[in-house]
Design a protein around this nucleic acid. Structure first.
Lengths: 182, 182
DNA sequence: GAAGGCATGTAAATCGTTACATGATTTA
DNA sequence: TAAATCATGTAACGATTTACATGCCTTC
């Protein structure tokens, strides 16, 4: 019973006691979203699939048409199997800011500095959001990971900004035209 | 002229002097892959699109059927526009290991420890790969980012492993059964 | 002349976001 | 009673991976 990426969060959240798609979305947004997101467009079809596969069971509709589910014994088994699985654990990292920095020599220094500045600000906002979630009492290790990562990332971009400024002072207007290889 | 995600690397690599899809793939694998990948299935159609849009121009076929491109003036403009763009810079982070750690209480401690161990080993391998690329003489800042990130990540997972071991000593067999909320 | 690396390309399948449509219930 | 929030769902599009098909060129 191979779980799809979205099934992993959805089934896990149901196992933790969440009952509806809407609940799952709300909790995901405040917990796993940073490293494992899920949109409504994925959650609702996934709940239907999981029910069809017998991993969760949906009781009748509650108030406001809420469709409440709970995990089944088979669902619990599938979840444990995944949690114990030795298969390589998916990892993906994508950063447009880094890509721009990589092609840095193709752009004037002012543009590079502006980008670095924006990255620093974005990291500050995310850190503030994480602090807020922390303040609500969450002690999840995953949150600690998020906070530590953002602190490190913020620091890297600040140092990057400083390096660019130093370079701007030495060579105020670097060449932006790339020479062709012959 | 909105550039697709793949167009950003492809056009950038052509601007840096790479000539064919095959070359781009090889260079990407040793430079941006960690934060911005591209597969053949994306690169070749993207080259065709970029040529159709006039951002690159393909000369005739070289040896072994090589199809060589170079950037046009319009392509250079499009690239600079993107590099200077203030739009939010895409960022994505996905870690199945963290998701498993988040649902940790649903699994026996041995499974959690095994996962942490695997993560530590994976990070050690990636770090070794980065060191190898560094040894080849690359000084790209993006590589420094990769090395520093992996060092930090490796350290986090080692600390996580230690925390799990400490917990295993105190409570050798924690409950794995989740209580339902009523 | 066989093997292996160079090189381009397509097709299928999956994954994920976004926008939209719809309606119930609570609150100002 | 209007607005906000709760709640489910679908459709369209775009991004991405993987597997496959094909042929050239060099080296052993």
């Amino acid at each position: 019973m191979e779980l799809s990426p979205t099934a992993k969060v959805v089934l896990g959240m149901i196992a933790l006691g969440e009952r509806t798609g809407y609940d799952i979305k709300r909790v995901v947004e405040r917990s796993t979203a940073f490293f494992w997101g899920a949109s409504f467009g994925q959650i609702y079809p996934e709940l239907a699939r999981l029910e069809g596969a017998g991993l969760i069971s949906g009781s009748s509709r509650g108030p406001r048409g809420r469709k409440e589910y709970e995990i089944t014994a088979a669902g619990r088994r599938a979840l444990r199997t995944w949690l114990a699985s030795p298969e390589p654990q998916a990892f993906a990292f994508r950063s447009e800011g880094l890509l721009k920095a990589f092609f840095g020599d193709l752009a004037p220094i002012e543009d590079r500095l502006a980008n670095a500045r924006r990255l620093v600000e974005w990291n500050e906002h995310v850190l503030a959001l994480f602090r807020e979630i922390e303040a609500e009492g969450s002690t999840a290790e995953a949150l600690t990971y998020g906070v530590e990562f953002i602190k490190w990332n913020l620091d890297w971009w600040r140092r990057h900004e400083r390096r660019l400024k130093a370079r701007a002072r030495t060579r105020p207007r670097p060449e932006t035209r790339v020479r062709h290889r012959r």
